[in-house]
Each structure stands twice: as structure tokens, then as C-alpha cells.
């Protein structure tokens, strides 16, 4: 049927090369034996070894995972609540302010968010550490979660909930047994998004972290500011690998689920 014209094929190829070539080079040179990241000096995995020996990096990675996990769970709960408020709660005093506060962090420059949270923590005399990073990350990622969940909620057919009420559910029961299972995919992707945002954040973490709570991005940033280092390449490769593995697994399972559903559907119509 549709065949790609040479123009479209070229723009797709060049575009994908632009998107992926830098990362491919980064991954290849993480296996470079030499200290320079631009000159190939034979294959080696020694930088991975030295990375795992580097206690500062390992500690930072642990802090990052801890912050990411806790803040994304909190953000998912708060963000889902906020999405329900925005889509379902109707009018209430301060609704405009509420939806403004949900959308503003999405476009707010990170430097401002970071600065403002830092000034808050100082003003209330809170010591900066893991807790303050968690609070900061929860605040901005809950907004992303609420956008993801509310877009699913908007498409949700409210008559399903009415049907549940009609069949004897209390409103809470109806939410738990009908709405939540149906919007679950959006809640899960909201969690994933919040988790990645937290793992990825440099600027806000720099403002809100204390000396004892350095996260991985802060560590990476201070290392690469000085120049490129093969150890960072190795670390990046691991991070890219985890993401690629996760995304490919998810897309393959969902693809398989879709094909299975399609097959069953066809069978259903054949039977009917």
C-alpha cells in the first residue's frame, strides 16, 4: 500500500540517526580501554569495574533510587487525587487557583521551582536532605501524574460509574471496583513518569539537597562539568540499558496482549 517516498525515508533516517547516534557513540565508548572518550584504544569493561568501586557514585545512586521511589508513590497518590478533583469535583471555591497550581509547575523553569522550594525550607528551618528532595520531587511530579491521569479520566465513560451505583455500589466502592481498574494503566504510566522525572532531575535536587544527600544527577553533573570521563559513559550505558530494557519489555507485552485480544475478538464474531 503506502510506500515511503525517498524524501520521507531520508528525513526519517536522518531524524532517527540524529536522535540515536549520540547515545550509540556514548555506549560504544563506554567499552573503550583508553582514558580518552574520543579515541578508540581497544575493548575493555574496566570502567564498569571502577564505577562499581566508586563509593560516592554508588551512594548517590542509592539516594536517587530511594528519593525516586518514595516521591513517585506520593506523587501518584496526590496526582490521581488532583486529577479526580479537576475532572469530577465540579465547582468549588478556589478551583481556578487549584488548576493553575496543577498546570504551572509543568511550564515553570526548574531554576525557579528549585529556588523557591529552597527558600521555603530555609524559612521554616528545615534541614536539607533526602526528605526535602522527596517533598520537592513529589510536588512537581504530582502535576505530571495528574495531567496523565486526568486525560484518561476525561475519556472515561461516566455511565460506567452510574451503572455501578445503580447496581448497589457506594460511591467509594464504585470508584474502587470500576473506575480505578479502568484508569489503572494511566496511573501506572503516571508513576513511571514521576519516577523517571525524579531520577533525572538535576536542578531542583541541587537546590533542595544537603551535603549528605547527593543524588546521581548532581554527582554526574559535577563530574562532566569538568570534562568527559569514561566512567560516566559506563554509568550512562547502564542507565540507558535499563530504560531500553524496560520500555521494550512493556511494549512487547502490551503488543502481545493486543494481538491476543484481537484474535479473541475475531473468534467472538465468528461464533456470533
Amino acid at each position: 500500500m503506502k510506500r515511503l517516498s525517498w524524501f520521507n525515508a531520508t528525513s526519517l533516517t536522518l531524524g532517527l540517526a540524529f536522535l540515536y547516534l549520540p547515545m550509540v557513540i556514548l555506549v560504544i565508548y563506554s567499552f573503550n580501554a583508553g582514558k580518552l572518550v574520543t579515541v578508540w584504544a581497544g575493548f575493555s569493561t574496566k570502567w564498569y569495574g571502577s564505577l562499581f568501586q566508586n563509593e560516592a557514585f554508588m551512594n548517590a545512586a542509592w539516594v536517587t533510587l530511594k528519593v525516586g521511589f518514595i516521591s513517585s508513590c506520593l506523587a501518584t497518590i496526590l496526582g490521581t487525587m488532583a486529577a479526580i478533583v479537576i475532572v469530577r469535583a465540579g465547582r468549588f471555591p478556589g478551583r481556578t487557583l487549584f488548576s493553575g497550581m496543577i498546570y504551572a509547575p509543568l511550564v515553570m523553569p526548574e531554576v525557579i521551582t528549585g529556588l523557591s522550594l529552597l527558600l521555603l525550607f530555609i524559612a521554616i528551618g528545615m534541614d536539607r536532605g533526602v526528605l526535602t528532595i522527596i517533598l520537592a520531587h513529589t510536588t512537581f511530579s504530582m502535576c505530571y501524574v495528574s495531567v496523565v491521569v486526568s486525560s484518561r479520566l476525561v475519556a472515561f465513560d461516566e455511565s460506567l460509574e452510574e451503572a455501578a451505583l445503580d447496581l448497589g455500589c457506594t460511591p467509594f466502592d464504585a470508584f474502587k471496583s470500576v473506575t480505578l481498574p479502568i484508569i489503572a494503566p494511566a496511573v501506572i504510566s503516571g508513576w513511571l513518569l514521576a519516577f523517571t522525572l525524579s531520577l533525572d532531575d538535576l536542578v531542583i535536587a541541587s537546590f533542595t539537597s544537603g551535603p549528605s544527600s547527593t543524588t546521581l544527577p548532581i554527582k554526574i553533573f559535577s563530574a562532566v562539568r569538568l570534562g568527559v570521563s569514561p566512567e560516566i559513559n559506563a554509568l550512562s550505558t547502564i542507565m540507558i540499558g535499563i530504560v531500553a530494557f524496560g520500555v521494550i519489555t512493556v511494549s512487547l507485552t502490551s503488543k502481545r496482549a493486543i494481538t491476543r485480544a484481537k484474535r479473541e475478538e475475531q473468534k467472538a464474531f465468528a461464533d456470533a
Partner: peptide
């Protein structure tokens, strides 16, 4: 690429 670290993607260009 959205899911991979922003910092790493910028860093890749240094080399």
C-alpha cells in the same frame, strides 16, 4: 529518549 536521562543526552554531545 524522553525516558533516558536528560543529563546523559546532553553529555553525549560533549564528546
Amino acid at each position: 529518549p524522553f525516558w533516558t536521562s536528560f543529563l546523559i543526552r546532553v553529555y553525549a554531545w560533549k564528546a
